[in-house]
Simulated scan of single mutants.
Amino acid sequence: MKNSKLAILLFICMAIVSCKPKIYSTNGETIYKTGKNIKGEKMLDKSASRITIVSSCITCHGKNGDRMNGLSIQFSSLSNPNNFTIPYNDSLVYRFLDDDLKSDGTKADIGVIWKMNDQDKKDLLDYLKTL
């Protein structure tokens, strides 16, 4: 009887711990991996996006930002003049997030539109610089 109570208690504790949401070290990492900021606000603008099943950047770009063939969103790649005629800088990344425009000003048309305040964009960019 004592062992079964202990087993039940252990099971309940494990269930509680496993249901606890993962906490990331920065707001930018939280946005990248969950699609929500640390306040829990969803960043995907479903009303403006054609692709609405995506929940976060990691869904397409992977853990290290380089999953998509030929397109890494690691800032070191985006800002490399060997990769882009007009390399991305901070303001061009923000413009991409706001207006879905590539570094050369043409429409990216990726089908996923994010809505972020200035701090969320800065935090996300700071995280991309760590990948």
Rank of each mutant, 00 (worst) to 15 (best):
N3V: 00
N3E: 03
S4I: 08
S4Y: 07
S4G: 02
K5R: 02
L6P: 00
A7F: 04
L10Q: 02
F11A: 15
F11Q: 00
F11L: 12
I12G: 03
C13S: 13
M14R: 00
I16P: 02
V17T: 06
V17C: 11
K20L: 15
P21S: 11
P21H: 06
K22R: 11
K22M: 10
K22Q: 15
I23R: 09
Y24G: 05
S25A: 15
T26F: 08
N27P: 02
G28A: 13
E29H: 09
E29L: 09
I31L: 15
Y32W: 04
Y32Q: 08
K33M: 09
T34V: 07
G35M: 11
N37K: 11
I38V: 14
I38L: 14
I38P: 00
E41Y: 03
K42P: 01
K42D: 06
M43L: 09
K46Q: 05
S47Y: 04
S49C: 09
S49F: 13
R50F: 14
I53L: 06
I53W: 09
I53C: 07
V54C: 07
V54N: 06
S55N: 15
S56P: 01
S56L: 01
C57L: 05
C57G: 09
T59W: 10
H61C: 01
G62D: 02
K63P: 00
N64E: 02
R67I: 00
R67C: 02
N69A: 10
N69R: 14
G70M: 02
G70Q: 05
L71F: 08
I73Y: 12
Q74A: 12
F75G: 13
F75P: 12
S76L: 04
L78A: 08
S79I: 01
N80S: 07
P81C: 03
T85Q: 13
T85V: 06
I86Y: 07
I86P: 05
P87K: 09
Y88K: 08
Y88F: 15
N89H: 07
S91K: 12
S91I: 03
S91L: 10
S91V: 06
L92K: 15
L92M: 10
L92F: 03
V93S: 08
V93Y: 06
V93P: 03
Y94D: 14
R95Q: 05
R95F: 00
F96H: 14
D98R: 12
D98S: 06
D98A: 12
D99Q: 10
L101E: 15
K102A: 15
K102M: 13
D104P: 05
D104I: 04
D104N: 15
G105T: 04
G105P: 04
T106W: 04
T106Y: 11
T106R: 14
T106A: 11
K107N: 14
D109Y: 10
D109V: 02
I110K: 07
G111K: 07
V112C: 04
V112R: 03
W114H: 11
K115H: 12
M116N: 05
M116Q: 04
N117G: 07
D118L: 14
Q119T: 02
D120E: 14
D120R: 13
D120H: 13
D120F: 12
D120M: 13
K121W: 02
K122L: 13
D123P: 01
D123N: 10
L124Y: 04
L124R: 12
D126S: 11
D126G: 08
D126T: 12
L128D: 03
L131G: 13
